[in-house]
């Protein structure tokens, strides 16, 4: 789980005050922000060879169905934190609204989660790399485990039951 470790370090550094960081007192609930990434970070996730299921959810704070389905993801992330399972929430919010919209939302609703703001506006360059069937509407979610050759893509809003069912079927194929 190198990536988790890496991600946690990044998140802690990005999100906490310098004092908190220096004293090694990260308080994720209170100082959590999103981190800004380029496409390469997503590509590394897509190419990750380790045997765990990565759930990559594309969303934005302005997208109502996205905001509606996120609590289902959060519930399972907390419930199944001991399973070989990781969640990445890839925000497509506009980068000039990061501090105004995305970070307050993250801090309030996605405590302890990995929230990445994807800073790539040339969508046509990468949408097909997520899935050729994706037209670009959000929410959209990719379930991937390269080691088990699992790759499922859903381009609609998920109910809690559906999400649970899909993750279970990916964990126990």
């Amino acid at each position: 789980m190198i990536f988790d470790y890496h991600g946690n370090i990044l998140r802690t550094m990005a999100s906490c005050s310098l004092l908190g960081w220096a004293l090694l007192l990260p308080r994720p609930g209170q100082c959590q922000k999103s981190i800004t990434v380029k496409w390469e970070s997503i590509q590394r996730l897509l190419d990750s060879p380790d045997d765990s299921l990565t759930v990559i959810n594309f969303w934005a704070t302005w997208c109502k169905p996205c905001v509606k389905e996120l609590p289902h993801f959060e519930k399972l992330r907390k419930e199944w934190k001991d399973k070989p399972l990781r969640f990445r929430y890839i925000s497509l919010d506009f980068k000039d609204e990061k501090t105004k919209r995305l970070d307050p939302f993250t801090s309030k609703n996605l405590k302890g989660a990995h929230v990445w703001l994807l800073d790539e506006t040339d969508y046509n360059a990468w949408i097909d790399r997520v899935d050729p069937h994706w037209e670009g509407g959000i929410p959209a979610t990719l379930f991937i485990n390269n080691s088990k050759k699992i790759r499922k893509f859903v381009a609609t809003e998920l109910s809690g039951d559906n999400l649970r069912r899909i993750i279970q079927s990916c964990l126990h194929p």
Partner: peptide, 9 residues
């Protein structure tokens, strides 16, 4: 043919 992110219909 190009693709872009948008709000779903």
């Amino acid at each position: 043919l190009t693709k872009a992110v948008g709000c779903t219909v």
